[in-house]
Amino acid sequence: MTRELLNPRERFGLLVIDEPQDRVPVYPLVTSRAARVLGKTVREYCTDGITMARCQLAAQDRFGHDFISLFSEVGLVAEALGSAYDYPEDDVPMLLRPRWRGLPEESDLSDVSDPSDGRVRMFLSAVEYAWEARSDTVPVLAFIPAPFTTAQQLVDPEEFLLGLLTAPEQAKGLLDWVTRATVALTRKVIEAGGLPVFVDPLASGSVISGEQFREFALPYEAGVIRFCHRYDLDIILHVCGDGGPVIDLLPETGADLLSIDLIGLDRAIAAAGGRCRVVGNFPTTQLWLASPAEVGSAAGEMVRQGRACPKGFVAATGCEVPHDTPDENIDAFVAACREAGTNRAFGQQS
């Protein structure tokens, strides 16, 4: 790969202070897919922090994208708060048994000022390792499940969604509690060197309505993002799935960058691009199954459209890169996005 003028950290640094970059940052969400780069199983990747970090570093070396992404799945906080997970050999951890059958009472909610159980320590060690190894040149993103998604994994999912309708205040009590735990974990992540990315897939339009998002997801996303803004951090909020019902609401969370999935890019930019940088949103299935040429062509088109975003654009996939995505497809995506996203005027002084 030819040497570029800026490294990813420099490029991201310009993006978040509203300055033009040499090209758009390129971000296929290579998360657990990174395990393949070092020949590790997904279980190894998701349960050992050093392995996770080393896989991410190797993936960044291999594909040349612009971010390190430390993420296994959305159960990290829920597991720390008492839900049980299964660890398949070649898939991400799966919810085995939520902590509660129904919405808990307030008396069930214990102190959460120091969430260290489950895989939290593992995760923090991944963050520390990646930070030490590469944070001078590549931003290290640490994915943290947002409160709504976490809450839905602490309670039987159907009971939880029903509870939004039948016992909303009780649901909010749980969400407040989860938010406190999430903030506590976020603080640890920041201190370990990770830039928090909040993921809230279970708050997407694929699961709940826009009104429910406004009442039960938005305030809590805003709470954790507000905490991060105390540190002047630039926060990505990732809500995959159907973004249509929620796109107009997402900027109200205070997120600085919105990572979107199933929604037209032009619509997302129109709704949110004046206030937030847009991250997205190449279809992951297409990345997985199409030919490299098709991927390259479509990615280039996406970037040409995305560059119109007034606040800035990151050329990304809509969600995590599937495990079986061929290397050459990821290469094609990165190459096409770089080419289409190049700013030839950068550094040319008048």
Partner: peptide
């Protein structure tokens, strides 16, 4: 402007490369 506040801890800048 929100961007003009500056009293942030070393952690903030360490996250943006000041290891």
């Amino acid at each position: 402007e929100p961007w003009s506040y500056y009293m942030f801890p070393p952690q903030t800048f360490a996250l943006y490369g000041a290891k």
